[in-house]
Design a binder for these strands. Structure first.
Lengths: 134, 134
DNA sequence: GTTCGTGCAAACGGTTTGCAACAAT
DNA sequence: ATTGTTGCAAACCGTTTGCACGAAC
């Protein structure tokens, strides 16, 4: 909580009650919620929070580099509290999105891509997540 | 043209005038157009073509495995006439999307992904495309 | 008292859908 | 006659925006 306040300040974000509520959720969430899902969730504890504020707040967080916006789903954008480079796995049946650590995958280009100045990349995998082996 | 008719039939798609017009464009397009862009374009030669038919037709093509639907852009889906597995590069300034041949990139997982049953994957790269050399 | 954030409702843009007219077989 | 396709308009859903109110410095 006090840690979250500091994190907002460190990113040049004035910490308000609403922003704190959103940050507390998104920064500690394993899920990759849509803006509306964030609203649903945070509204439980902050019932006065408006949908517009959630959208504005999440966009602010993205612009300030606190979280990432990911285009992984049709029709909507999801937000990712994991802020370092990483890959993604999407369960084709449940639609769930999982973060894959950067060093779990090695990507090598074979020199034919001279035309392109690559600033960033990620691997997007699709399939089925097996039953948790505890 | 006659070749396109065959291609539609081979995918179990009844070739109508509208479907042919859409197919002729999307199958030979280097661009990665949105449904609306397909409409704009195909409407030039087929002015009676409705927006709904374009959406329906593109979805039909995807379901029949003739083209791919790609989630690479915020707010909209793009269609890709290249039907084999390949990667993508997105120019961050122009928004243009380029197909990257499958064998131009090598992806190796280092064995930590046992939880995941991977059916498909692609690398999504972002950056700037350099001026064409030649 | 000026600046910034919030909430509401309306607007917006991409997409889907219900339905009536219309082939095609 | 039945089945499938098209076109139109309305509906839908995620998101943004205009504006008035309110809080903070």
């Amino acid at each position: 909580m006090i840690k979250t306040i500091k994190e907002l300040r460190d990113h040049g974000i004035l910490p308000t009650a609403q922003r704190l509520a959103v940050a507390e959720y998104i920064l500690h969430s394993e899920a990759h919620p849509t803006a509306d899902q964030v609203w649903e969730r945070v509204r439980v504890t902050s019932p006065t929070l408006s949908r517009a504020t959630v959208y504005n707040t999440l966009n602010l967080f993205v612009n300030k580099g606190l979280i990432q916006r990911q285009v992984l789903r049709e029709g909507t954008v999801v937000f990712d509290g994991m802020n370092d480079a990483h890959h993604h796995f999407i369960d084709e049946e449940t639609g769930q999105i999982f973060d894959i650590p950067w060093d779990a995958i090695e990507v090598k280009t074979n020199g034919n891509l001279g035309e392109y100045d690559i600033h960033a990349y990620q691997v997007v995998m699709r399939g089925r997540r097996k039953k948790k082996t505890s």
